[in-house]
Design a protein around this nucleic acid. Structure first.
Lengths: 207, 207
DNA sequence: CGGAAGGTAGACAGGTCTGTCTATCTCGTG
DNA sequence: CACGAGATAGACAGACCTGTCTACCTTCCG
């Protein structure tokens, strides 16, 4: 209220993050130099370093974008599968299929980032936080679905998901996503039990 | 050849590869400079470049070592599970558990390598070849086990395996391996037929 | 003895990387 | 208008990285 009640400006910082997203994801973090990001985003070096005192700061901001994007796709795919939690657990794998099919798909930005940074670093920790939050969300849905052991089921499903993300980046074949979804179906079916799938009811809030 | 029958030298090249293995795996490929490898392996620069004209050559040699090591552990774990192919399909996940528990575990060297190299590069291709060969082996075992769809089953199991490798590098919790194995058990059981773990895989009583 | 093969030590070139710093320009607001 | 905030352009420092090259040394073997 005092002075800077100005709304988010559509420039500078956003352009940097956007460019970083594109380059980091496509070529890797270490392979992408600050100078290139500066050139491609069309800002001055001083401006860049004002917003991001170090490259690591930018990397973390990049991962925030990845987090938002991927979580959004996951939630959207789950919701598109219908109101039943058990169906959503399977449906979220459509996000994997869509991602694999996308041009320039290079796997999970987080896994890739973690692969080139030391455990314990900020970047690595950010990755762990992301994976933890995804698993927590899946766990909640699994609980709604009436799974006998939501922890184990969410762990199994995210394992499948991460596997799809990792190997999908390699052979880029959509088979992986199809098989992952089918496997998820089998696991969910077994874990929820022979009883009717959790009836539609409450729709779980998204994080 | 004249008379150089004095072949087996336990030195030079091997020391380089061994050092590279340790450093590449622990810190990543790009993060590890040639100079450090040279210093730590105790060879001269000229010697290094005689054996490996470029860093990429060394990286490929490193991946060969990783391939051998990991494939060996996989096969050993499978064999340790007994003679029944269906049991072996589940047992191979013990290799994952052992790996996760090891000090300095940093996930799959191949996935990490692929994460920091461009698709289409030699290193990337080497990774794809490795993953393909593992999957082919699992497929063969699945076939022996009498799986209805060995391709799908092998794909599902390697998905689980890759997921465990990728996420195990993050939270380093052995839970992942336990859940992966249990999931594998469920998937194998469902794919091999209703006869739940009926000893040898020949007994396919699928209706 | 003599010579070839291969190892050692380290300077060097040329490029790239992160991050700092100066100097100028623009613009909104008091 | 004046002023300060924030952007721009780009030189620069210092480190590091890959790869080349010279020069010397050891060892084996005919």
């Amino acid at each position: 209220m005092s002075s800077t009640s100005k709304v988010p400006p559509p420039s500078a910082r956003d352009r940097i993050v956007q460019t970083a997203f594109r380059l980091f994801y496509a070529h890797g973090i270490r392979a992408t130099g600050i100078d290139l990001i500066i050139a491609e985003s069309g800002v001055a070096k001083a401006t860049f370093y004002k917003h991001f005192p170090s490259k690591d700061d930018l990397v973390v901001a990049y991962l925030d974008v990845v987090d938002e994007a991927w979580s959004g796709q996951l939630h959207a795919a789950a919701e598109a599968a219908g109101p039943a939690p058990a169906d959503q657990l399977v449906g979220l794998f459509d996000a994997l299929g869509n991602a694999c099919r996308r041009e320039g798909y290079r796997g999970c930005g987080f896994i890739n980032a973690a692969a080139e940074t030391a455990p314990g670093s900020r970047v690595h920790d950010r990755t762990v936080a992301h994976k933890t939050s995804v698993r927590a969300w899946v766990r909640d849905v699994a609980e709604d679905a009436g799974a006998k052991d939501p922890d184990a089921l969410s762990r199994a499903l995210t394992l499948l998901l991460d596997g799809g993300l990792a190997s999908g980046a390699l052979d880029a074949s959509p088979d992986a996503a199809v098989v992952a979804k089918a496997s998820a179906q089998a696991l969910v079916g077994a874990a929820v039990g022979p009883t009717r799938r959790g009836a539609a009811g409450k729709t779980r809030g998204r994080a």
